[in-house]
Protein backbone atom coordinates (compact mmCIF):
# COMPACT_ATOMS: atom_id res chain seq x y z
CA UNK A 1 0.00 0.00 0.00
CA UNK A 2 2.77 2.48 0.87
CA UNK A 3 4.60 1.86 -2.39
CA UNK A 4 1.31 2.38 -4.15
CA UNK A 5 0.77 5.65 -2.30
CA UNK A 6 4.23 6.95 -3.15
CA UNK A 7 3.66 6.15 -6.81
CA UNK A 8 0.31 7.95 -6.71
CA UNK A 9 1.79 10.97 -4.99
CA UNK A 10 4.57 11.22 -7.57
CA UNK A 11 1.98 11.02 -10.33
CA UNK A 12 -0.01 13.73 -8.58
CA UNK A 13 3.04 15.99 -8.47
CA UNK A 14 3.50 15.37 -12.18
CA UNK A 15 -0.08 16.36 -12.89
CA UNK A 16 0.34 19.58 -10.89
CA UNK A 17 3.53 20.48 -12.72
CA UNK A 18 1.89 19.83 -16.09
CA UNK A 19 -1.13 21.95 -15.17
CA UNK A 20 1.15 24.79 -14.06
CA UNK A 21 3.25 24.66 -17.20
CA UNK A 22 0.39 24.41 -19.67
CA UNK A 23 -1.38 27.35 -18.00
CA UNK A 24 1.80 29.40 -18.17
CA UNK A 25 2.23 28.73 -21.88
CA UNK A 26 -1.42 29.36 -22.72
CA UNK A 27 -1.47 32.66 -20.85
CA UNK A 28 1.68 33.87 -22.57
CA UNK A 29 0.38 32.82 -25.97
CA UNK A 30 -2.54 35.26 -25.56
CA UNK A 31 -2.07 38.67 -27.18
CA UNK A 32 -1.10 41.54 -24.93
CA UNK A 33 0.18 41.33 -21.38
CA UNK A 34 -1.29 42.25 -18.00
CA UNK A 35 0.42 45.64 -18.00
CA UNK A 36 -0.95 46.80 -21.34
CA UNK A 37 -4.42 45.53 -20.46
CA UNK A 38 -4.45 47.21 -17.07
CA UNK A 39 -2.69 50.46 -17.79
CA UNK A 40 -2.49 50.97 -21.54
CA UNK A 41 -6.14 51.33 -22.51
CA UNK A 42 -7.05 52.89 -25.84
CA UNK A 43 -8.00 56.14 -24.16
CA UNK A 44 -4.98 56.57 -21.97
CA UNK A 45 -2.07 58.87 -22.63
CA UNK A 46 0.39 56.57 -20.96
CA UNK A 47 3.74 56.52 -22.72
CA UNK A 48 5.37 53.27 -23.86
CA UNK A 49 8.32 54.09 -21.57
CA UNK A 50 6.02 54.17 -18.53
CA UNK A 51 4.56 50.79 -19.54
CA UNK A 52 8.02 49.32 -19.99
CA UNK A 53 8.98 50.51 -16.52
CA UNK A 54 5.97 48.65 -15.10
CA UNK A 55 6.81 45.51 -17.09
CA UNK A 56 10.29 45.59 -15.62
CA UNK A 57 8.81 45.93 -12.14
CA UNK A 58 6.65 42.82 -12.63
CA UNK A 59 9.48 40.92 -14.31
CA UNK A 60 7.53 40.75 -17.57
CA UNK A 61 10.51 42.08 -19.55
CA UNK A 62 12.51 38.92 -18.86
CA UNK A 63 12.80 36.17 -21.51
CA UNK A 64 10.02 33.59 -21.25
CA UNK A 65 12.16 30.69 -19.90
CA UNK A 66 13.60 32.97 -17.21
CA UNK A 67 10.12 34.07 -16.14
CA UNK A 68 8.98 30.46 -16.09
CA UNK A 69 11.86 29.16 -14.01
CA UNK A 70 11.70 32.10 -11.58
CA UNK A 71 7.96 31.69 -11.04
CA UNK A 72 8.16 27.92 -10.74
CA UNK A 73 10.92 28.29 -8.17
CA UNK A 74 8.84 30.67 -6.11
CA UNK A 75 5.77 28.47 -6.45
CA UNK A 76 7.71 25.47 -5.10
CA UNK A 77 8.51 27.54 -2.01
CA UNK A 78 4.81 28.35 -1.61
CA UNK A 79 5.09 31.90 -2.97
CA UNK A 80 2.58 32.28 -5.79
CA UNK A 81 3.43 35.94 -6.36
CA UNK A 82 1.20 39.00 -6.23
CA UNK A 83 -1.73 40.03 -8.38
CA UNK A 84 -0.82 42.49 -11.12
CA UNK A 85 -4.29 44.00 -10.81
CA UNK A 86 -4.54 44.83 -7.11
CA UNK A 87 -1.15 44.05 -5.63
CA UNK A 88 -2.52 41.44 -3.20
CA UNK A 89 -0.58 38.20 -2.59
CA UNK A 90 -2.11 35.39 -4.65
CA UNK A 91 -2.19 33.09 -1.63
CA UNK A 92 -4.34 35.63 0.26
CA UNK A 93 -6.70 36.03 -2.68
CA UNK A 94 -7.14 32.26 -2.96
CA UNK A 95 -7.48 31.76 0.79
CA UNK A 96 -10.29 34.35 0.79
CA UNK A 97 -12.00 32.86 -2.27
CA UNK A 98 -11.82 29.20 -1.29
CA UNK A 99 -14.29 29.00 1.65
CA UNK A 100 -17.36 30.46 -0.15
CA UNK A 101 -16.75 28.17 -3.13
CA UNK A 102 -16.21 25.17 -0.86
CA UNK A 103 -19.52 26.01 0.81
CA UNK A 104 -21.61 25.88 -2.36
CA UNK A 105 -19.60 23.07 -3.93
CA UNK A 106 -19.93 20.91 -0.79
CA UNK A 107 -23.63 21.59 -0.54
CA UNK A 108 -24.02 20.87 -4.25
CA UNK A 109 -22.17 17.57 -3.94
CA UNK A 110 -24.39 16.41 -1.07
CA UNK A 111 -27.49 17.47 -3.00
CA UNK A 112 -26.25 15.78 -6.16
CA UNK A 113 -25.56 12.49 -4.39
CA UNK A 114 -28.90 12.51 -2.56
CA UNK A 115 -30.99 13.58 -5.57
CA UNK A 116 -29.01 11.68 -8.22
CA UNK A 117 -28.73 8.56 -6.09
CA UNK A 118 -32.37 8.74 -5.02
CA UNK A 119 -33.54 9.14 -8.57
CA UNK A 120 -31.51 6.15 -9.74
CA UNK A 121 -32.77 3.94 -6.92
CA UNK A 122 -36.43 4.89 -7.38
CA UNK A 123 -36.23 4.62 -11.18
CA UNK A 124 -34.79 1.12 -11.00
CA UNK A 125 -36.94 -0.07 -8.11
CA UNK A 126 -40.36 1.05 -9.29
CA UNK A 127 -42.61 -1.44 -11.06
CA UNK A 128 -44.28 1.38 -13.00
CA UNK A 129 -42.71 1.50 -16.44
CA UNK A 130 -44.09 5.01 -16.96
CA UNK A 131 -42.52 6.37 -13.78
CA UNK A 132 -39.27 4.60 -14.50
CA UNK A 133 -39.21 5.90 -18.08
CA UNK A 134 -39.95 9.42 -16.90
CA UNK A 135 -37.27 9.37 -14.22
CA UNK A 136 -34.67 7.92 -16.56
CA UNK A 137 -35.34 10.69 -19.09
CA UNK A 138 -34.45 13.37 -16.53
CA UNK A 139 -30.64 12.97 -16.37
CA UNK A 140 -30.04 13.78 -20.08
CA UNK A 141 -32.22 16.86 -19.62
CA UNK A 142 -30.29 17.85 -16.51
CA UNK A 143 -27.01 17.69 -18.38
CA UNK A 144 -28.42 19.53 -21.39
CA UNK A 145 -29.82 22.55 -19.50
CA UNK A 146 -27.27 25.40 -19.53
CA UNK A 147 -26.29 26.34 -15.95
CA UNK A 148 -26.37 30.02 -16.82
CA UNK A 149 -30.01 29.86 -17.89
CA UNK A 150 -30.99 27.54 -15.05
CA UNK A 151 -29.37 29.84 -12.48
CA UNK A 152 -31.08 32.93 -13.86
CA UNK A 153 -34.43 31.10 -13.88
CA UNK A 154 -33.96 30.10 -10.24
CA UNK A 155 -33.13 33.71 -9.27
CA UNK A 156 -36.18 34.95 -11.17
CA UNK A 157 -38.54 32.57 -9.42
CA UNK A 158 -37.16 32.12 -5.93
CA UNK A 159 -35.70 35.55 -5.32
CA UNK A 160 -37.39 38.12 -7.55
CA UNK A 161 -40.92 36.67 -7.87
CA UNK A 162 -41.14 34.76 -4.57
CA UNK A 163 -38.70 36.36 -2.13
CA UNK A 164 -37.40 33.16 -0.51
CA UNK A 165 -33.65 33.61 -1.02
CA UNK A 166 -31.38 36.65 -1.46
CA UNK A 167 -30.19 37.16 -5.05
CA UNK A 168 -26.89 38.79 -4.22
CA UNK A 169 -23.72 38.06 -2.36
CA UNK A 170 -22.43 35.81 0.37
CA UNK A 171 -25.11 36.32 3.03
CA UNK A 172 -24.94 33.06 4.97
CA UNK A 173 -26.68 29.77 4.30
CA UNK A 174 -29.77 31.23 2.58
CA UNK A 175 -27.66 32.77 -0.17
CA UNK A 176 -25.85 29.45 -0.75
CA UNK A 177 -29.01 27.47 -1.54
CA UNK A 178 -29.77 28.61 -5.09
CA UNK A 179 -26.12 28.52 -6.24
CA UNK A 180 -25.78 25.02 -4.79
CA UNK A 181 -28.92 23.85 -6.61
CA UNK A 182 -27.58 25.33 -9.86
CA UNK A 183 -24.24 23.59 -9.40
CA UNK A 184 -25.90 20.32 -8.35
CA UNK A 185 -28.08 20.01 -11.45
CA UNK A 186 -25.54 18.70 -13.98
CA UNK A 187 -23.71 16.79 -11.25
CA UNK A 188 -26.78 14.98 -9.98
CA UNK A 189 -27.77 14.18 -13.56
CA UNK A 190 -24.41 12.51 -14.15
CA UNK A 191 -24.61 10.53 -10.94
CA UNK A 192 -28.20 9.47 -11.64
CA UNK A 193 -27.32 8.40 -15.15
CA UNK A 194 -24.32 6.37 -14.08
CA UNK A 195 -25.94 4.78 -11.06
CA UNK A 196 -29.21 3.86 -12.72
CA UNK A 197 -27.48 2.07 -15.59
CA UNK A 198 -25.15 0.33 -13.22
CA UNK A 199 -28.09 -0.70 -11.02
CA UNK A 200 -30.11 -2.00 -13.95
CA UNK A 201 -27.18 -4.13 -14.98
CA UNK A 202 -26.49 -5.39 -11.47
CA UNK A 203 -30.14 -6.28 -10.87
CA UNK A 204 -29.99 -8.74 -13.77
CA UNK A 205 -27.15 -10.64 -12.08
CA UNK A 206 -27.92 -14.20 -10.96
CA UNK A 207 -27.02 -13.49 -7.35
CA UNK A 208 -29.95 -11.10 -7.13
CA UNK A 209 -32.29 -13.93 -8.08
CA UNK A 210 -30.53 -16.10 -5.54
CA UNK A 211 -31.06 -13.56 -2.84
CA UNK A 212 -34.70 -13.13 -3.77
CA UNK A 213 -35.19 -16.90 -3.90
CA UNK A 214 -33.72 -17.16 -0.44
CA UNK A 215 -36.43 -14.81 0.74
CA UNK A 216 -34.75 -11.41 0.91
CA UNK A 217 -37.19 -8.61 0.26
CA UNK A 218 -36.90 -6.59 -2.95
CA UNK A 219 -36.00 -3.48 -0.97
CA UNK A 220 -33.26 -5.27 0.89
CA UNK A 221 -31.80 -6.81 -2.24
CA UNK A 222 -31.98 -3.45 -4.00
CA UNK A 223 -30.43 -1.33 -1.29
CA UNK A 224 -28.12 -3.78 0.46
CA UNK A 225 -26.81 -5.96 -2.31
CA UNK A 226 -27.24 -4.34 -5.69
CA UNK A 227 -26.61 -0.73 -4.68
CA UNK A 228 -23.32 -1.52 -3.00
CA UNK A 229 -22.00 -3.25 -6.07
CA UNK A 230 -23.41 -0.69 -8.46
CA UNK A 231 -21.96 2.26 -6.53
CA UNK A 232 -18.37 1.87 -7.71
CA UNK A 233 -18.70 3.42 -11.19
CA UNK A 234 -20.78 6.21 -9.69
CA UNK A 235 -17.97 6.83 -7.22
CA UNK A 236 -15.50 7.18 -10.11
CA UNK A 237 -17.77 9.74 -11.69
CA UNK A 238 -18.05 11.61 -8.40
CA UNK A 239 -14.29 12.05 -8.51
CA UNK A 240 -14.63 13.60 -11.93
CA UNK A 241 -17.48 15.90 -11.01
CA UNK A 242 -15.43 17.63 -8.32
CA UNK A 243 -13.57 19.24 -11.20
CA UNK A 244 -16.92 20.02 -12.81
CA UNK A 245 -18.07 21.75 -9.64
CA UNK A 246 -15.05 24.03 -9.67
CA UNK A 247 -15.53 25.02 -13.30
CA UNK A 248 -19.28 25.33 -12.75
CA UNK A 249 -18.51 27.85 -10.01
CA UNK A 250 -17.32 30.32 -12.66
CA UNK A 251 -20.80 30.63 -14.13
CA UNK A 252 -22.72 30.10 -10.89
CA UNK A 253 -20.79 32.68 -8.90
CA UNK A 254 -21.24 35.23 -11.65
CA UNK A 255 -25.00 34.70 -11.87
CA UNK A 256 -25.41 34.77 -8.09
CA UNK A 257 -22.97 37.67 -7.54
CA UNK A 258 -20.88 35.63 -5.12
CA UNK A 259 -17.22 36.04 -4.34
CA UNK A 260 -15.26 32.82 -4.70
CA UNK A 261 -12.80 30.84 -6.74
CA UNK A 262 -15.00 30.97 -9.85
CA UNK A 263 -15.26 34.76 -9.85
CA UNK A 264 -11.57 35.07 -9.11
CA UNK A 265 -10.88 32.89 -12.14
CA UNK A 266 -13.22 34.86 -14.40
CA UNK A 267 -11.88 38.29 -13.44
CA UNK A 268 -8.22 37.32 -13.48
CA UNK A 269 -8.46 35.58 -16.83
CA UNK A 270 -10.04 38.64 -18.44
CA UNK A 271 -7.37 40.88 -16.91
CA UNK A 272 -4.68 38.34 -17.86
CA UNK A 273 -3.56 38.50 -14.23
CA UNK A 274 -1.13 35.64 -14.78
CA UNK A 275 0.01 34.98 -11.19
CA UNK A 276 -3.61 34.70 -9.98
CA UNK A 277 -4.71 32.42 -12.83
CA UNK A 278 -1.67 30.20 -12.20
CA UNK A 279 -2.57 30.01 -8.51
CA UNK A 280 -6.19 29.14 -9.20
CA UNK A 281 -5.21 26.41 -11.66
CA UNK A 282 -2.78 24.94 -9.13
CA UNK A 283 -5.47 24.89 -6.44
CA UNK A 284 -8.02 23.29 -8.77
CA UNK A 285 -5.52 20.67 -9.91
CA UNK A 286 -4.57 19.91 -6.31
CA UNK A 287 -8.19 19.41 -5.28
CA UNK A 288 -8.79 17.21 -8.29
CA UNK A 289 -5.72 15.08 -7.68
CA UNK A 290 -6.47 14.68 -3.98
CA UNK A 291 -10.08 13.67 -4.53
CA UNK A 292 -9.12 11.05 -7.06
CA UNK A 293 -6.40 9.76 -4.81
CA UNK A 294 -8.90 9.50 -2.00
CA UNK A 295 -11.31 7.61 -4.22
CA UNK A 296 -8.61 5.15 -5.25
CA UNK A 297 -7.95 4.51 -1.59
CA UNK A 298 -11.63 4.02 -0.85
CA UNK A 299 -12.25 1.44 -3.62
CA UNK A 300 -10.70 -1.54 -1.84
CA UNK A 301 -12.76 -0.73 1.22
CA UNK A 302 -15.93 -1.06 -0.81
CA UNK A 303 -14.81 -4.03 -2.82
CA UNK A 304 -12.08 -6.23 -1.34
CA UNK A 305 -11.38 -7.75 -4.76
CA UNK A 306 -9.83 -4.47 -5.92
CA UNK A 307 -6.24 -4.74 -4.84
CA UNK A 308 -3.65 -2.08 -4.57
CA UNK A 309 -0.01 -2.26 -3.69
CA UNK A 310 2.50 -5.01 -4.42
CA UNK A 311 0.09 -7.25 -6.36
CA UNK A 312 -0.46 -4.24 -8.59
CA UNK A 313 -3.49 -4.97 -10.67
CA UNK A 314 -6.56 -2.98 -11.51
CA UNK A 315 -6.45 -0.02 -9.20
CA UNK A 316 -9.63 1.54 -10.33
CA UNK A 317 -12.57 0.27 -12.33
CA UNK A 318 -12.61 1.71 -15.83
CA UNK A 319 -14.77 4.80 -15.51
CA UNK A 320 -17.68 5.76 -17.70
CA UNK A 321 -18.59 2.37 -19.07
CA UNK A 322 -21.05 1.39 -16.41
CA UNK A 323 -22.25 -1.87 -17.85
CA UNK A 324 -18.75 -3.31 -17.81
CA UNK A 325 -17.53 -1.40 -14.84
CA UNK A 326 -19.85 -2.97 -12.33
CA UNK A 327 -17.74 -5.59 -10.64
CA UNK A 328 -18.90 -9.14 -10.51
CA UNK A 329 -21.03 -9.71 -7.46
CA UNK A 330 -19.70 -11.60 -4.53
CA UNK A 331 -22.28 -14.28 -4.05
CA UNK A 332 -20.93 -15.27 -0.70
CA UNK A 333 -22.05 -11.94 0.66
CA UNK A 334 -25.69 -12.89 0.30
CA UNK A 335 -26.88 -13.69 3.79
CA UNK A 336 -27.61 -17.34 4.27
CA UNK A 337 -30.46 -16.72 6.60
CA UNK A 338 -33.30 -15.14 4.80
CA UNK A 339 -34.20 -11.98 6.56
CA UNK A 340 -36.98 -9.47 6.20
CA UNK A 341 -36.39 -5.81 5.78
CA UNK A 342 -34.80 -4.23 8.72
Amino acid sequence: MSRYLVRRLLLAAGVLWAAYTVTFLVLYALPGDPVSIMYGGESSDVTPEQLDALRAQYGLDQPLPVQYVTQLGHALRGDLGTSVVNGQPVTTLIADALPPTAQIAGLALVLAIVVGGGLAVVATATRSRRLSGFLLSLPPLGVAVPSFWFGLTLVQWFSFQIPLFPALGNQGFASAVLPAVTLALPTSALIAQMLSRSLLHTLREPYVDTALAKGASRTRVHLRHALRNAALPALTVTGLVIGGLLSGAVVTETVFSRAGLGRLTATSVSAQDIPVVQGVVLVAATVYVLVNLLIDIVYPLLDPRIVTGSRRRVTSPPPPRPADAAPEPAADRVPVTAGGTR
Binding site: L152, F160, P163, L168, S257, R263
Partner: peptide, 19 residues
Protein backbone atom coordinates in the same frame (compact mmCIF):
# COMPACT_ATOMS: atom_id res chain seq x y z
CA UNK B 1 -22.01 49.17 -3.09
CA UNK B 2 -22.92 45.57 -3.87
CA UNK B 3 -21.25 43.84 -6.81
CA UNK B 4 -23.71 42.10 -9.16
CA UNK B 5 -22.04 41.20 -12.49
CA UNK B 6 -25.21 40.14 -14.31
CA UNK B 7 -27.26 43.10 -15.63
CA UNK B 8 -30.55 41.16 -15.45
CA UNK B 9 -29.84 40.24 -11.82
CA UNK B 10 -29.26 43.91 -10.98
CA UNK B 11 -32.55 44.79 -12.63
CA UNK B 12 -34.40 41.99 -10.82
CA UNK B 13 -32.83 42.93 -7.50
CA UNK B 14 -34.15 46.46 -7.94
CA UNK B 15 -37.66 45.46 -9.01
CA UNK B 16 -37.88 42.99 -6.11
CA UNK B 17 -36.71 45.62 -3.62
CA UNK B 18 -33.43 43.93 -2.64
CA UNK B 19 -31.43 47.02 -3.59
Amino acid sequence: FQVAPEASVRTGSLTSGQV
